[in-house]
């Protein structure tokens, strides 16, 4: 029972981090229709910036400064890169961000080195908040959850209910019209892109010390983030939350199951050669494939994702 609770809790933490990471991308996709391939790279930059800042100033200033820096960088990328390729269409935008992700992935180890950097959880929050089944539960993880939930609430409210959200959404469908109403559409796009990147940076600040801060972190999470955004339905914040949590729970649960597939299939009445290749895979070893398996399943059943609005 406690084991189950622990899995649920860990799944929740992982799912909420995934949401934090994908919320920025969901925002960008939903508002601008740009799938930013470099999103996880901004997450990585957030973690590295936070590491460098926290060495000098400590964690709390880093929590504010690092996302701002990443957001500013994102705004520059939008202004001087994305805007130039915009007229060549969506695929060109995507290709540009692919190249960007690649270049960031090469530059980061140049600055901070190949091995992981020792970016640690701040001491104030590094105490067991409660114990569960003999395992201590770190207070920092509760903090992480709190931030994720706050982001969800904030984004949801901002997009659905405020005038700014209205302007942004209108700018996407009718740029000329919104332009004529006196709003600076290109600047709105720059701001949205910067904000999305800042969210990725924030996820980096908060996630980088729980997981590892290393040059491989962007690639490790990049594809999962896209799985979340596509599965949730392009641009849907609640969809992204749902998909993140689903991936979080199922992946965490599958890591703990080391029953061989053969035994499982046998129980379901399917005869599998118990020493064949398939039969010997344990569920735990299949865990990395879980997000993508879920993605494919969702797309087969629901081509637009769980809560997709955008057809594109």
């Amino acid at each position: 029972m406690e084991g189950l609770l622990l899995v649920l809790l860990n799944g929740l933490v992982y799912g909420l981090l995934l949401f934090m990471l994908s919320s920025g991308l969901t925002l960008i996709v939903g508002m601008m229709g740009v799938l930013n391939f470099a999103h996880a790279s901004f997450y990585m930059l957030g973690a590295y910036f936070a590491y460098t800042i926290s060495v000098g100033l400590g964690f709390w200033p880093a929590l504010i400064i690092a996302p701002l820096l990443v957001g500013g960088l994102g705004a520059l990328v939008e202004r001087y890169g994305l805007r130039a390729v915009h007229r060549h269409g969506k695929l060109a935008e995507l290709l540009f961000t692919v190249g960007l992700a690649f270049v960031i992935g090469e530059i980061v180890p140049l600055i901070w080195g190949r091995p992981a950097v020792p970016y640690r959880v701040p001491a104030v929050l590094d105490f067991p908040a409660f114990a569960l089944g003999g395992i201590n539960y770190q207070a920092y993880r509760l903090f992480m959850m709190g931030v994720s939930v706050a982001i969800f609430a904030g984004l949801y409210a901002a997009l659905a209910r405020t005038r700014l959200g209205l302007v942004i959404r209108a700018a996407l469908t009718h740029p000329e019209m919104v332009g004529m109403l006196g709003h600076n559409v290109p600047r709105v796009f720059t701001l949205v892109f910067g904000a999305g990147c800042a969210l990725a940076g924030l996820a980096g600040v908060i996630g980088g010390n729980v997981f590892t801060t290393s040059p491989g972190m962007a690639e490790a999470l990049g594809a999962i983030v896209f799985a979340v955004v596509i599965m949730g339905g392009l641009g849907s914040i609640p969809g992204a939350l749902l998909a993140s949590l689903a991936i979080g729970f199922i992946q965490t649960a599958s890591v703990t199951l080391d029953t061989p597939l053969g035994v499982l299939l046998g129980r379901l009445g399917m005869a599998v050669d118990p020493h064949g290749a398939l039969a010997e895979i344990t569920i735990a070893r299949a865990a990395p494939a879980v997000p993508y398996l879920l993605l494919v399943l969702v797309l087969v059943v629901h081509p637009r994702g769980l809560m997709g609005a955008r057809a594109d």
């Binding site: 695929l91 594809a223 896209f226 392009l234």
Partner: peptide, 28 residues
């Protein structure tokens, strides 16, 4: 079933899935 950027993202997922499978099946 998808087109444009969504198609691209789905192929990314499929690629990850394929790599995971290949790693999972050292016998093959």
């Amino acid at each position: 079933r998808r087109e444009g950027t969504s198609f691209a993202m789905v192929t990314l997922g499929i690629a990850e899935l394929a790599v995971a499978f290949v790693v999972m099946l050292p016998q093959w």
